[in-house]
């Protein structure tokens, strides 16, 4: 098997000092291979958001090693970290985190701009990414003119526009109603079917059930790690959908 996309070993994160010490992560070890679709579940306070922030190179662990696409993230300088976040990771937040008063397409273009892509090429790729999430017709809208589901789909487009090795989603459906949740999850299913590596954090069983692999986190440690479907096949949701609604599936293609 090829080099793992993500490999963490004995990851620990400790907040505070002395009496008030909190072990948000107490020795998590996991490996994610290319094309996998992993859901990390756990109750609030189980350390899943801390894990996600470390995986996204937004935060640094107290101890333990983290290899991202074979690169040891803890040894990177500030500038190299920025580069890693730009090239290797696509991050999707619970609160969408689109830049306000900026059109959808400009938001999607942003990581490409930081990557130094020429404006014309940038626009083309941003429109492609918006097309994947089914929002090409809303390219000129600003975030406050879009629904929550649409905003999250723009955020997904922004995360995948750089074609990163890893898509990270932190409770992507936490702020959405069931209809929007379904839309966003469908996008994830399609992306997984197209071979993208996805790690998603959630506390909703419905979301976890669609992933190829389910990891449960309790008190900062991994307690179960279950493979729900084979890594080389499309995820359950995508199969179900392509059987039932083949016509709609044709719209999303990467």
């Amino acid at each position: 098997m090829s080099r793992p996309v993500l490999q963490v070993t004995d990851l620990k994160k400790i907040y505070g000092t002395g009496e008030a010490t909190v072990h948000a992560l107490s020795g998590a070890t996991m490996t994610v291979h290319r094309g996998d679709y992993v859901a990390i579940m756990g109750s609030s306070g189980s350390g899943k958001s801390t894990l996600m922030n470390i995986l996204g190179a937004l935060d640094i662990p107290t101890s333990g090693s983290y290899l991202l696409d074979g690169v040891d993230v803890s040894r990177l300088s500030d500038g190299q970290l920025a580069l890693a976040r730009n090239r290797l990771i696509g991050f999707i937040f619970q609160a969408f985190n689109l830049i306000p008063r900026t059109t959808a397409v400009a938001n999607v273009e942003l990581p490409l701009a930081y990557a130094g892509v020429k404006p014309k090429e940038r626009r083309r790729r941003a429109m492609e990414a918006l097309d994947v999430v089914g929002l090409a017709d809303r390219a000129g809208h600003e975030p406050n003119q879009l629904s929550g589901g649409q905003q999250q789909r723009v955020a997904v487009a922004r995360a995948l526009v750089t074609e990163p090795a890893l898509l990270l989603a932190d409770e992507p459906t936490g702020n959405l109603d069931s209809k929007s949740t379904d839309d966003v999850l469908q996008v994830f299913d399609d992306l997984s079917a197209a071979g993208r590596t996805i790690v998603i954090i959630t506390h909703e069983d419905e979301v976890g059930a669609r992933a190829k692999r389910l990891i449960r986190l309790v008190d900062g440690a991994i307690v179960t790690d279950v493979r729900q479907s084979p890594i080389h096949l499309p995820p359950v949701g995508a199969i179900r959908r392509s059987a039932g609604r083949a016509v709609v599936a044709g719209r999303h293609s990467l």
């Binding site: 500030d78 500038g79 976040r85 090239r87 990581p111």
Partner: peptide, 12 residues
């Protein structure tokens, strides 16, 4: 916004 930009890979 600065946080978002940094998360998207903007150098300092």
């Amino acid at each position: 916004e600065i946080g978002i930009r940094k998360a998207l890979g903007a150098p300092r």
